[in-house]
């Protein structure tokens, strides 16, 4: 058994190894010309440090030369930030990143958009229904998931820009519920909730029409015992401002030990 197993092991390991499709060798740090030199990677931190010092020195010199002038206010963030600093213009890597930033600014919700679209307004059931109901109260108020369903249906329809209460919503935006208010970017809003999309009206209507969750919502809106608020308007022009919140997601990291 012992020998047999060792033979099987040897055969199987070779079989597995021989059947592998070996990928092409990855390109390694630029080593072609300098056989025995340390890798470029090892030099990157000192190079970055050196570059930082050079930049600081240049900034310092410029500041000295401009010493006589009145201090200029810092340029406002936002549109001005898209103008590449001159040092980047010569650097193909920098230019590439710059083009990427410009290309992604719009899809990331950093550019205001205006155009025809659709507005859905969700509201709680009227006071008299709420006070006289025998239903669970949860049927009678708008929930975060109702707002999300509308937003998601709009995105599914290819909406160019979506707003909730006039605030631009992007892929990292949170729509959460706290008590009877809905929180958008840390700000509580109370009902009615206006969700608007700039985009092709036919597609938007079709997506909102076919969304299963919204179908249930509309049935409940039509039910006089619930009559939760649903309103849909086609609008010739909707303006979605640029998103002003943070774009990056912060994440946690597990504690070691």
């Amino acid at each position: 058994m012992g020998i047999e197993m060792e033979e099987t092991l040897s055969r199987e390991l070779h079989e597995v190894a021989d059947r592998l499709a070996v990928p092409p060798m990855p390109s390694l740090p630029s080593h072609a010309s300098n056989g025995g030199q340390p890798s470029r990677r090892a030099w990157e931190p000192p190079l970055v440090a050196a570059a930082t010092i050079v930049v600081l020195a240049v900034v310092g010199l410029l500041a000295l030369q401009e010493g006589g002038h009145d201090p200029q206010p810092a340029p406002p963030p936002g549109p001005a930030a898209s103008q590449a600093p001159p040092s980047r213009a010569d650097d193909p890597e920098g230019q590439r990143h710059q083009r990427r930033i410009e290309r992604l600014q719009d899809p990331a919700g950093q550019v205001p958009r205006t155009g025809p679209g659709v507005t859905v307004t969700l509201s709680d059931a009227p006071e008299e229904v709420i006070s006289s109901t025998t239903h669970d109260l949860n049927f009678l108020v708008v929930h975060q998931q109702d707002i999300r369903s509308v937003v998601n249906a709009m995105w599914k329809a290819g909406a160019i820009a979506v707003t909730v209460q006039g605030q631009r919503v992007v892929s990292t935006a949170e729509i959460t519920c706290e008590g009877n208010a809905v929180i958008l970017q840390g700000m509580p809003y109370s009902q009615p909730y206006r969700v608007s999309a700039v985009g092709d009206q036919d597609s938007l209507l079709a997506a909102i029409d076919s969304d299963p969750d919204l179908k249930v919502y509309r049935q409940q809106a039509a039910d006089p015992e619930i009559s939760i608020g649903w309103d849909l308007q086609l609008e010739p022009s909707i303006t979605a401002p640029a998103y002003e919140g943070q774009l990056d997601l912060n994440d946690g990291e597990p504690r070691r030990g």
Binding site: L13, V16, A17, L20, V22, P23, M25, L28, H31, A32
Partner: peptide, 19 residues
């Protein structure tokens, strides 16, 4: 040179690495 050696050693290295 490192490059010559790496190119010749890569398939074998990869197979062992996979195992």
């Amino acid at each position: 040179t490192f490059e010559e050696y790496a190119a010749s050693a890569w398939p074998r290295l990869y197979r062992t690495a996979y195992l």
